[in-house]
C-alpha cells in the first residue's frame, strides 16, 4: 500500500512544526508496518499526551490517545485482553520516562508483547520547552534559565535493566536503520523498546544553539555511531545506535494462557 493509505489525510498538513523529527518517526513507522504487511485492523496504537502523542490522530489504525505518561498502562489492558492485536506505543521522552517512568519499567519487566517507541527530543515540546529527564545537565531549557543541573537517563540501559526483551536506538537522520529496527521491534515477541533521537528545532534547537532541523540532524549524523562499526579499543564519546538487547524471554500473555489452562483444570 502507499503511504497515504496509512494516514488520515484530512488532518494533513499535520500540526507538527516545520522540521519536527516526530514526523520522520511517523514516516518510518508507516514504512515498517507496510513492509511487514500487517493489516490495519490488527494494529492498536496507543499514545499519551505531548507533541509526539499526536501521532495517533494521524495514522489510520485503531487509535487510543490517552493521558500524559499512561499510554503503556492503557496498552497493557488492550494487549492482555486481546493478545492477537499488535500494540504499538509511541511516546515522548517526558511522557515515557518522567511521568510515565514507573509504567515504563514495569512494562519492560512484565515483558508483554508491546512495541514502545521513545521519540526522544530531550525536551517538553508541547508545553513549550521545559527540560525533560532526557535533556541532561548542561543543556538549556525554559525552566533551566541558569543551565540544567538535572542529569539524564540512558533509555537503553534503563530498558535493559528493567528486563525488556528487545532494546534498540536510532535517529531521525538514520532512516533506513530506524525502519529496520522498528520492524525488528514489532516482530519481537515481548516488550520492545526503540529509542529514536528526534529533533525539536522549535525548543531544544533554539535553546541549545541549533537553529534548524538540518543542524540537529547533522548533529545526529556526526555524534552517533553504529554498534556494528565500533573498532576495537573504541573510546570516542558518541551515542551508540543499533540493537542492544535481543533475547527471548517468557512473554506475559502467553504465560497467562498457561495460568488459564491450569485454572480451568482446577489446579492450584
Amino acid at each position: 500500500m502507499a503511504v497515504r493509505d496509512y494516514i488520515r489525510q484530512r488532518f494533513f498538513p499535520h500540526l507538527w512544526c516545520p522540521g519536527c523529527g516526530h514526523g520522520i518517526v511517523m514516516n518510518g513507522l508507516i514504512r515498517a508496518i507496510d513492509h511487514m504487511a500487517i493489516p490495519k485492523n490488527d494494529i492498536v496504537m496507543v499514545s499519551g499526551i505531548g507533541c509526539s502523542s499526536r501521532i495517533t490522530g494521524y495514522v489510520d489504525v485503531h487509535t487510543l490517545h490517552t493521558l500524559h505518561g499512561r499510554a503503556l498502562a492503557f496498552a497493557a489492558g488492550v494487549k492482555l485482553s486481546r493478545p492477537e492485536l499488535r500494540v504499538i506505543v509511541p511516546m515522548g521522552d517526558g511522557d515515557a520516562l518522567s511521568i510515565g517512568g514507573n509504567h515504563f519499567i514495569h512494562a519492560a519487566r512484565r515483558n508483554m508483547d508491546i512495541t514502545a517507541i521513545v521519540m526522544n527530543n530531550r525536551i517538553y515540546g508541547m508545553t513549550g520547552g521545559q527540560f525533560s529527564p532526557l535533556s541532561g545537565s548542561g543543556t538549556q531549557a525554559s525552566t533551566a534559565p541558569f543551565g540544567n543541573i538535572d542529569p539524564a537517563f540512558d533509555v537503553v540501559s534503563l530498558a535493559k535493566a528493567a528486563g525488556a526483551g528487545f532494546v534498540a536506538r536510532s535517529t531521525t537522520y538514520h532512516v533506513t536503520e530506524m525502519i529496520d529496527l522498528l520492524k525488528q521491534a514489532i516482530s519481537h515477541r515481548g516488550f520492545s523498546v526503540v529509542e529514536i533521537l528526534s529533533q525539536c528545532p522549535t525548543y531544544f534547537g533554539k535553546h541549545n544553539g541549533m537553529e534548524s532541523a538540518v543542524d540537529m540532524m547533522e548533529n545526529f549524523r556526526k555524534n552517533t555511531k553504529s554498534l556494528g562499526k565500533i573498532p576495537e579499543g573504541y573510546s570516542e564519546d558518541k551515542v551508540l545506535r543499533g540493537v542492544f538487547v535481543n533475547e527471548n524471554r517468557p512473554e506475559y500473555c502467553q504465560e497467562y494462557e498457561r495460568i488459564i489452562a491450569s485454572a480451568m483444570k482446577g489446579e492450584t
Partner: peptide
Amino acid sequence: LRCPDLAIEVISDDESTDEVS
C-alpha cells in the same frame, strides 16, 4: 523517507513507490 511531512514521493520504474532500499 526523511520528509517529516510525508510531502515527497520518488517514483522510479522498477518498484512500487514506497519500497525502501
